[in-house]
Simulated assay, not measured.
Amino acid sequence: MERKPPAGGNERSNTDDGSDVSPSRSSRRRFLSAVGASTAALSVSGLAGCLVRGEPSHLEGQIVVDGSNTLLPHGAAVAEEFQWRNNRVRIPVRGSGTGAGFQLFCEGATDVQNASRPILGPEDVPEGQLSEVEQCGQAGVDYVEFEAALDGIAIWVHPDNHWCDCLTTEELRRIWEPGSDVETWGDIREEWAEAGHDGELELYGRDPASGTFDSFTKAINDEIGAIRSDYSASADTNVIVRGVRGSENALGWGGLGYYEENKEDLKLVDIDDGDGCVTPTRETIETGTYQPLTRAMYVYFNVNSFEKEQVREYARFYFSPIDERADRSDVEPGEQLTWTQWAARKVGYFATTDESVREARDRLEEVLARYE
């Protein structure tokens, strides 16, 4: 049977749920639509008992995936490749959001949870509120966590802003901390005020429903949700982009991919975490030198679901080397990526480290040994 080209071809896609996920080339939304349609087609064919695509294997059954809309394109890309090689397995991949997904996951309603942030423990929620870790524990849902992809949160300004090329993490904290008294560019650096760059700051960022909001506030202000209240918050990063490109005094933040799509309208700001100014790029994110705004995104497997062989093999697939049929347009010469690394690059994110993959594979096999 001739292999149909991977959904979306070489395009990247872009989805916006409250998370920052934009492609480094084309539109992640187009990739997501293509993969989603392909995944749905496979699921429908399986339900109808008429397997018209893919290759047969001894595996069969369903794997239910939900969670982060940010990570939805990544999960859908992995699911499509696995389903192609095991065409009696159905993997509906949904994106209810990280928080809503954990609610279902901790009820045992899903096998796999995509997350744009780590699961929340008691230290991450207000006193008296049941954390996600506690919810899973009360329901008897054991789980295992793996890094699935990396992303970078970028700081950008208007392209006519010729004075701000780099900000220190301390300056970012002063700008964004709760109760901040930074109101103008001159409040950030006296030299800017002396040079006449003392316009009133117009600040744009994500809203509290976003996993990117959680990551940014934790990285800059050391506490999830800690941020000044007088900025323009949006669930749609494209709104942030429009705000920044509309004013010379604007400053905003969001997923690096949104800069890649709007290079003519935005100027990227380097970040100095103490070792000099660093630009967010594939290299600096994948090597961990862009700090503290490189973030990991995660995949969680319900350990109880490992009783099902198709779920065990799907988990292994994540950390298995890509085969000769994989599209290698995002693979560098000499690289040997696994499917989770490949999918991250494919949809405009960044690959986790080889060390992370090795650790994940070893930990996974330890868990799977209980079921085989």
Rank of each mutant, 00 (worst) to 15 (best):
E309C: 13
I271T: 11
Q291T: 11
I271H: 04
T284Q: 00
D275C: 07
D323V: 01
E286P: 06
V311Y: 07
V269R: 13
P280C: 09
D330L: 11
I322F: 02
R295M: 02
Y318C: 12
L293G: 00
P280L: 04
E332A: 13
R316D: 13
K267G: 09
E286G: 00
Y300A: 01
R282D: 11
T289W: 05
K308R: 15
V303W: 11
E324H: 14
E309A: 15
K267N: 08
V278N: 01
K308N: 15
K308V: 04
G274H: 02
E307F: 09
E324W: 09
C277E: 04
E307M: 08
T279Q: 09
R295K: 14
D323I: 01
Y290P: 03
G288L: 07
I271G: 06
R328Y: 10
Y314N: 05
Y290T: 05
D327R: 15
D275W: 10
K267L: 12
Q310D: 14
A315C: 06
F319T: 03
E324L: 10
E332M: 14
Y290Q: 00
D275Q: 14
A296P: 04
R295F: 03
N302M: 02
T279V: 01
G274K: 08
T294G: 00
N304D: 15
V311L: 06
P292E: 01
E309I: 11
R316I: 05
T281E: 13
S305A: 15
T289C: 07
G274R: 03
D327L: 15
T289S: 13
S329H: 15
E332F: 15
R312T: 00
V299S: 10
R328G: 10
S305P: 13
A315H: 08
D275L: 03
P280M: 08
E313N: 13
A326K: 12
D323R: 01
T287K: 08
Y300W: 00
D275K: 04
D327C: 08
P280Y: 02
Q291M: 04
S320P: 14
I271N: 00
E324K: 14
F301V: 00
E309H: 14
E332N: 15
I285F: 01
D330C: 11
D323P: 02
T294P: 05
D330I: 05
T287H: 13
D270F: 06
D275P: 00
T284P: 09
I322N: 03
T289V: 06
Y290I: 01
N304K: 05
V331H: 07
A326L: 05
E283V: 01
V299L: 11
V311N: 04
Y290V: 05
T294V: 03
T279Y: 10
E313D: 11
R312E: 03
T281A: 08
N304T: 12
D270I: 04
S329P: 07
Y300K: 00
K267S: 12
E283N: 03
D275S: 14
S305Q: 06
N302E: 03
V303K: 13
N302V: 00
T284C: 01
V311W: 01
G274I: 07
Y290F: 10
D323W: 07
R295V: 06
Y290M: 04
R316P: 02
E313A: 06
G288D: 10
Y290L: 00
